[in-house]
Amino acid sequence: MAKQYDVLFRLLLIGDSGVGKTCLLCRFTDNEFHSSHISTIGVDFKMKTIEVDGIKVRIQIWDTAGQERYQTITKQYYRRAQGIFLVYDISSERSYQHIMKWVSDVDEYAPEGVQKILIGNKADEEQKRQVGREQGQQLAKEYGMDFYETSACTNLNIKESFMRLTELVLQAHRKELDGLRTRASNELALAELEEDEGKPEGPANSSKTCWC
């Protein structure tokens, strides 16, 4: 039985106050949604374990205060992140405009090679929409980011966007992770599956790398 590995990543949610960062986090980790808005004043985090490509990944997701007066402090948390969600609210043109500022903060404070993804949240509020889908796509393209319109309320694209950012981070650390996989198959070799006539293959690998 192959050894089990864990990799820990830090992902960070940033964006204007009220765009729904905390809601995205709650939906993803606890599958809960609360429509009332309580400002996050500080920095909060939750853990989530997912499996990507046979690797068990634990992600620590940091939810930051969006209010402007706290930004000098919250910026200091960027440094420890491997992936960052830049979140705006599709019903707030202003929050969309501010993405530029958030991006430049990320460039300044986050480590080199940090993975970013653009999120247009509150996609369920179609009638209040101020930011077109294309605008989001356009901006994401400009910055070379992936883009998702999400809704924490209707659970639209939540898992997808979190998984995507995790994948991007994994890819960015591929070198280290290749080491993991090789190691895992080394372990397999120890299972002493000597072939008689035909070599057993395929399913052996997948069944050995699952978690048990």
Binding site: K3, V7, G179
Partner: peptide
């Protein structure tokens, strides 16, 4: 070498959790 790196990565496991 790869195995070295894997070693680095495997040092900390979530033993209890597993």
């Amino acid at each position: 070498t790869v195995s070295d790196k894997a070693h680095i990565l495997s040092m900390q496991k979530f033993g209890l959790r597993d």
